[in-house]
Amino acid sequence: MSVIAVLNDIISTMFNKRYMDEIFKPQELHSKKAMRTVFDRLAHASIMRLNAASMDKLYDLMTMAIKYQVTLCSQPRDLLLVTLNHLDGIRAMVHNQPIVISTLDSLYHSFMDLYGKMQYGELQTVRQCLLTFFQDMHVRVSIFLKEGQQNQSGRFVLPRGGTVPMGSQVPGKIVLYDQTGEVRQRKQFHPGSTYKVAQKEGSLDLTGDRVTKLGCNMYSTHKPSETTTSGVESKKTSNHRTLTQAELSTPDPLAKAQLDLLSHLIGSGSASKTSFRINLFNNDEEEENYVSPVANQIQQEGTEFVEIDARKRTKDKYLDRVMGEMNISGGGASGDDDLLDLMDQA
């Protein structure tokens, strides 16, 4: 049950009413330092602890994931759908927690009251502002590289061709009119890539089909379906599908799914294992050598960090106990258990 406690702690801290009221006030873009501080606090809102290097890595992962989503929005309205995908994902994690659900509901309404009412042009400015924040961050993320979504230079791979935004025409046509508005000439040209028209617009309702997969759990693609009932169907769904109701409906898969999500939130985990696995670094050496490009950049901007040397291994009885609680499958401290290592280092 500690896992659910961790999730609830983080989610209720993140969506704390006072904090949300602040977030919805008109304000300048956060500095990188402020954003990092917020994220540190959020990550440490529960009993879970991350050492500095892991925190750096988690922060880089998070910023690059959001950068990816904002970058690939095909039109400004997609920003809303991406955010709703985030909220849908959180909702699926806490679906049996009525208090958290009601917090999410009111958050949805505040969000739609402000951003849902913005015109295309305003959302366009919001996106430009966000992309200014993410400008020059080129951390390479293993899942993006593996999925072919990022190239070795750290730039995201952009689709060439594909579906154009809702309401747009595919490139390739020129129509000329005379002074009375009659069509005078129609011409085609080859656009160079193959495009198709969008068929469906993403829903901005409390629940609904967002159409875009941006903002869905990007790790779910590695997760084989656990439920036999929806097995066939789930194979047909998109790679970026978030957890379905079916996967969450039975107690056992639920616990697994939540563990999985939490571990996925932090690093690339494997769903086939029942143990709590947070895999931030392959080995100690890699961790020692990890220098966060973003943290580095923040430091170059004249910020001093409180250095917490979390790389030295010290045993902590409290954490051992926490770990015992978190190990729901009773797998114990097997050599493969990366979370144990991680907590050990905290």
Partner: peptide
């Protein structure tokens, strides 16, 4: 507008042409 180029007459604002030019903005 969203990947479209429109051509207007500067003297009277009349639409002279529409080009479906690009897939994105």
């Amino acid at each position: 507008s969203n990947g479209e180029l429109r051509l207007y007459s500067l003297s009277n604002g009349i639409l002279l042409g529409v080009i479906d030019a690009h897939a994105l903005s």
